[in-house]
Amino acid sequence: MTEGNEQKVYDALKALEIKYIRYEHEPLYTVEDTKKLDINITGQHCKNLFLRNSKGNVHYLVLLDDAKKVNLKDLAKQIESTKLSFASEERLYKYLGLRPGSVTPFGIINDIESEVIVLIDKDITKADVVNFHPNVNTATIGLSYSDLEKFIKWHGNKVYYVDISI
């Protein structure tokens, strides 16, 4: 699914007239892996977390600055959710069509029912350029924050803005 999964992102960006810069690199699985890259990728580096509530009936995709850590208890309070935990690999694949290490907001393109709620840390909304994987972890694409919002709104997933302190 990975090849077609990546192409779906580029096709959607083209249809939405969203410009981006693409960087190819070795597979990256963690934020630490990105620090070892020998490429200068300009803009805000982000990390993405796929979470679920305690019943497993609500899923969240959290987008935040790659230097921040999330307190799941505080985040649950902020969004008025039951206890949050990381969703399983199976759930990640079922809802976003992604594998661990490739979590990205572009995965919502595979969320047919637009069920996943996107939580965006307010700090990344201030960035001119944000960087994410295009559904595979062997590339990174940089685009304007406003174009990222355009993509998410186009797909129809609910979006909430959250405050994640470091």
Rank of each mutant, 00 (worst) to 15 (best):
R99I: 10
D74W: 05
K73N: 14
N5S: 15
Q44G: 04
P105Q: 07
N137A: 05
K36A: 11
A139V: 06
K77V: 07
E24M: 06
D11W: 03
S146F: 07
N110F: 05
G43K: 00
L51K: 04
S114K: 15
A127Q: 01
R52Y: 02
T104L: 05
I79Q: 08
V31I: 13
Y60M: 07
D38W: 03
D11L: 11
W154S: 14
D111G: 08
T140A: 09
S165Y: 12
K47P: 02
L28W: 03
S54Y: 08
N53F: 08
S85P: 04
G97D: 01
A15S: 14
R22W: 01
I164F: 06
T140V: 07
P105C: 07
N40I: 09
N137E: 02
L61N: 04
L96W: 00
D33C: 08
E3P: 09
A15N: 14
L16T: 08
P27T: 06
T138S: 13
N53C: 08
E3H: 11
L143M: 15
I124Q: 00
H25M: 09
I108L: 13
I41V: 15
A127N: 02
H155V: 03
K8P: 02
A87H: 01
E149Y: 12
V162H: 06
L64H: 03
K153T: 11
Y29S: 10
D128C: 01
I166A: 11
L96D: 00
F132Q: 01
F50K: 09
V118K: 02
S165C: 02
I120L: 12
E3G: 05
Y93P: 00
E113C: 02
I39A: 09
K150A: 07
T140N: 10
E80Q: 14
H45N: 13
S54F: 06
L143D: 01
K14R: 14
E24K: 13
A15H: 11
R99S: 13
I117D: 06
V136Q: 11
Y20A: 07
T125S: 14
I164E: 03
T82W: 05
K150D: 08
L98D: 00
L75V: 11
L119I: 06
Y29P: 05
G107D: 09
Q44L: 10
V129Y: 10
I141W: 01
S102R: 05
T125W: 03
T125R: 12
S54G: 06
D38L: 10
Y145K: 07
D33P: 07
H59E: 11
F86V: 03
I108M: 10
G4N: 14
Y95H: 13
Y23G: 02
V118D: 01
V9F: 02
F151T: 03
Y145P: 03
L84A: 02
D65I: 03
I164Y: 03
A76C: 11
G142H: 00
N57I: 04
E26Q: 13
